[in-house]
Design a protein around this nucleic acid. Structure first.
Length: 600
RNA sequence: GCGAGCGUAGCUCAGCCUGGUAGAGCGUCACCUUGCCAAGGUGAAUGUCGAGGGUUCGAAUCCCUUCGCUCGCUCCA
C-alpha cells in the first residue's frame, strides 16, 4: 500500500532536485524521454564525489584491486556467453480480455473446448468490429459462459448490443494460448528484449547488431586475462570499473531509481576455488561469528570473502553518511538465486517509496548486490571464446605435491563434480562434459584453475538518490513575526556534499570585506568545490547553502580585517547541521577543511 | 503494453465545471539598505497554459491524438 505521506516526501525531493539543480529530466524541452535523467550542477558534483570515493577506496587504497575502463559496445558474443541474449528476451503474452501479462514459458497448459469469434455487430447502432476473440472452456462448461465473456470483450471495444459473429468450436489439448484464470485468448507471444540494440558500421543489418552493455561486469571478465598478465596481480585480486550501462526497462519507475541509462560501480574479485585453498592450507576458513571478518587471510574460502565484501561495502555506505539503520539486507533465497550463484546479499536503502513487508516494516530497495558467482562467468567466456581463462598457481602446485593420496583423490573428486555440474547445466553433451571435467580436475593437481568470483555491484544513480533522500530534512521554526516557516536542509556527509564550503563577506557594500573573502575563495577553489556568495543578507545566504547541503560556511567580517587586533586574519566558520560557529585562523582553514572533506 | 490520475512562471499552486485581456505566494535579478541565521524598500524579468489537431467569432477552459510524470498490473538477468 502506498503511503500518501511518503509520496508527498518523494514529491518534495523531486521538486528540490529540479529547483536546486540536482536532477533534471532528460530532453525536458522536447517533453522528456521516459527513463532518462540528467544531473544539474549540484547533482554532477555529488555524483563525481561518489564515484571518486568508490574508486579511491576500492582501487587506489588497496593493494589487491586494479581498475579498468572498457567500452560500452562490445563483441555481441559476450552477451551470448553471459546469458543476457537469452535471459533478457523472454516472450510475453497479454490476455486480450484483462490485459494481464504472462511469460509465455510459464503458462500452464489447458485443455477443453475453445470457442472462437470472428467479431461482433450492433445492428441498431450500425457498428461492427472484426477483432478475433476466443474463450477456452474446460470440459462440461456450457457455451453460454464463453458467449458472456466474448460479449464483455466486445462491449469494451465499443459494441453495445452485441451480436456475436462466426462462432466456431474447436477441441484443444494442452494449449498455452489461453489465460488459465478466465479462459480468454492471449496475444501471440512477443519477444521482450531488455538490451538496447544498435548497429556497428553504417549498414543496418542483422549481421552487425550490437548491444549497449546491460552491465559493466562482463568487460571485466572479457579482459581478465589481459589484466591478470599485465598488472602483476595474483589471485586473490579484483578488477573494478565504473561506467554506464543500459537496459530497456519495461517500466522505468521511482524517479531515477530505475532508469534505462544508468551507471554502475562494479568489482569482480577473483578468488581461488575452495578445493585449491584446502589443498594449500589444509582447511578452508568459514565465517563462524557475525560481522566483519577482518583483514583478508590466505585460507579464506568463498564464504569468508563473500562476508568480507558485504561488510566492506556496508562500511563504505556508513563512511558517506548512510547509517546501518537506513539500510536493509536481503539474502536471496535458493529459488531467487541464479543457478550459477552460490549466494547473493543485497544491500538495500529505505527509500520514501519503498514498500512495507507483511509485518509493517520498510524493507528497502536495492543499492548493491554482492554475489558469489562461482567460476561461471570465466568458464562461459572460456567456452565461447575458446581462450583459456585458467590461471597457474605456484602455491597450489607446491601444496598439492605435499598432500596425501586420499586427500588428493577427495579434492579431485569434489572439483570434478563441481566442473561436471557446471558443464551439464549449460548444456554440454554428457560425454564431452565428463572428459572436460576430468581435464579440469587434472589441471587442478598441476596448479591450474579457473578463478571463482565475488561481485559487489552497486548502482551509482540509486546511491545518489539514496544520499539525497537521506540528506533531505525539513526544518520548521517561527520567523521574527512568529509565523512558522519551513526550510529545507540537505544533510550531506562532507565527503559527498556537492559544495564543500561557501565563502561569504558579511556585507556586500564594503569592498575590503568582499576582496578579502574573494582571496580566501581563490585559495580554496583549486582544492575543493568552493562557492562565493555576496548577495543578500547573511542569514539568507546561510539558508541557501543549507538547501544545497554545503556543510561549512566561512564568513569574513570586520574582525578578519583587524577591528579587534587579536582576531586579525580569523574567520567565522559556521556548521550546517547545528548552526554552531567557531573562530578559525585563515591559515588553519585549508588543513581543517581537507581533514573533513578528503576522500579517505 | 493495459487501467486510473495529473501536466498553467524556476518551485508550489489558483483559474477549467459555466469558453471572452494568464494570476498568487515563494524564489531569481538589479539598485538602496545591511554588523551572523530565509530582515526591509524600490524596480524588473520569466509562460506558444506539455505538444499537435479539431469545434468556435474567440480555447488554459470543450473534443480527439500524442508525449511526459505518478499509482496499480506486468517486468525487474
Amino acid at each position: 500500500m502506498a503511503e500518501p505521506k511518503e509520496n508527498v516526501l518523494m514529491e518534495k525531493i523531486v521538486s528540490l532536485c529540479k529547483r536546486r539543480g540536482f536532477v533534471f529530466q532528460s530532453s525536458e524541452i522536447y517533453g522528456g524521454i521516459n527513463g532518462f535523467w540528467d544531473y544539474g550542477p549540484l547533482g554532477a558534483e555529488l555524483k563525481r564525489n561518489v564515484k571518486e570515493l568508490w574508486w579511491t577506496s576500492m582501487t587506489r587504497m588497496r593493494d589487491d584491486v586494479v581498475g579498468l575502463e572498457a567500452t560500452i559496445i562490445m563483441a555481441p558474443q559476450i552477451w551470448k556467453a553471459s546469458g543476457h541474449v537469452d535471459t533478457f528476451s523472454d516472450p510475453m503474452c497479454d490476455c486480450l480480455y484483462s490485459n494481464k501479462r504472462f511469460r509465455a514459458d510459464q503458462i500452464e497448459p489447458q485443455s477443453g473446448t475453445a470457442y472462437y469469434y470472428a467479431g461482433a455487430r450492433d445492428a441498431a447502432a450500425g457498428r461492427q468490429v472484426d477483432d478475433v476473440f476466443a474463450v477456452l472452456l474446460p470440459p462440461g462448461k456450457p457455451v453460454q459462459s464463453a458467449r458472456n465473456l466474448a460479449t464483455q470483450f466486445y462491449n469494451k471495444r465499443g459494441v453495445t448490443a452485441v451480436e456475436l459473429l462466426g462462432e466456431r468450436a474447436e477441441a484443444v489439448e494442452n494449449s498455452t494460448r489461453f489465460n488459465p484464470d478466465n479462459g480468454s485468448l492471449l496475444t501471440e507471444p512477443r519477444p521482450f528484449n531488455l538490451m538496447l540494440q544498435t548497429y556497428v558500421g553504417p549498414i543496418q543489418s542483422s549481421e552487425n547488431v550490437a548491444y549497449l552493455r546491460p552491465e559493466t561486469a562482463q568487460a571485466i571478465f572479457a579482459q581478465f586475462k589481459n589484466v591478470h598478465e599485465t598488472s602483476r596481480q595474483k589471485v586473490p585480486f579484483g578488477i573494478g570499473q565504473v561506467g554506464k550501462a543500459f537496459r530497456n526497462e519495461v517500466t522505468p519507475r521511482n524517479f531515477t531509481f530505475r532508469s534505462r541509462e544508468f551507471e554502475q560501480m562494479e568489482l569482480e574479485f577473483f578468488i581461488k576455488p575452495d578445493e585449491a585453498v584446502e589443498a594449500i592450507h589444509g582447511a578452508v576458513a568459514v565465517p563462524t561469528v557475525p560481522g566483519h571478518p577482518g583483514e583478508p587471510q590466505p585460507n579464506w574460502g568463498w564464504q569468508m570473502w563473500h562476508r568480507y565484501w558485504v561488510e566492506e561495502r556496508v562500511r563504505f555506505y556508513e563512511s558517506i553518511g548512510l547509517s546501518r539503520e537506513t539500510l536493509g539486507f536481503h539474502i536471496q533465497t535458493t529459488e531467487e538465486l541464479a543457478h550459477y550463484a552460490r549466494a547473493t546479499t543485497d544491500i538495500l536503502f529505505k527509500f520514501p517509496f519503498s514498500k512495507r513487508d507483511a509485518a509493517g516494516n520498510v524493507v528497502g530497495d536495492e543499492l548493491e548486490g554482492i554475489a558469489a558467482r562461482s567460476d561461471f562467468d570465466l568458464s562461459q567466456h572460456e567456452r565461447f571464446s575458446g581462450k583459456s581463462m585458467g590461471v597457474f598457481d605456484e602455491d597450489l602446485r607446491t601444496g598439492w605435491g605435499k598432500l596425501e593420496d586420499a586427500k588428493k583423490a577427495s579434492l579431485s573428486k569434489r572439483y570434478y563434480d563441481a566442473r561436471l555440474n557446471y558443464l551439464m547445466r549449460v548444456g554440454v553433451d554428457a560425454a564431452k562434459a565428463q572428459v572436460d571435467a576430468k581435464e579440469d580436475a587434472e589441471g587442478l593437481a598441476k596448479g591450474q584453475y579457473i578463478p571463482h568470483v565475488i561481485e559487489p555491484s552497486a548502482g551509482v544513480d540509486r546511491l545518489i538518490l539514496a544520499l539525497i533522500a537521506n540528506a533531505f530534512t525539513e526544518i520548521t521554526d517561527p520567523d521574527d513575526k512568529g509565523k512558522s516557516e519551513t526550510r529545507v536542509m540537505m544533510r550531506f556527509h562532507p565527503r559527498v556534499a556537492p559544495i564543500k564550503v561557501a565563502i561569504l563577506p558579511l556585507l556586500k557594500n564594503k569592498p575590503e570585506l568582499v576582496s578579502k573573502a574573494r582571496s580566501i575563495f581563490e585559495a580554496l577553489r583549486p582544492l575543493m568545490n568552493a562557492y562565493f556568495d555576496e548577495a543578500g543578507s547573511i542569514g539568507r545566504r546561510y539558508a541557501r547553502q543549507d538547501e544545497a547541503g554545503t556543510p561549512f560556511c566561512v564568513t569574513v567580517d570586520f574582525d578578519t580585517l583587524g577591528e579587534k587586533p587579536e582576531l586579525l586574519n580569523t574567520v567565522t566558520l559556521r556548521h550546517r547541521d547545528d548552526g554552531r560557529q567557531e573562530r578559525l585562523a585563515i591559515d588553519q582553514l585549508i588543513p581543517w577543511l581537507m581533514e573533513r572533506v578528503r576522500c579517505v
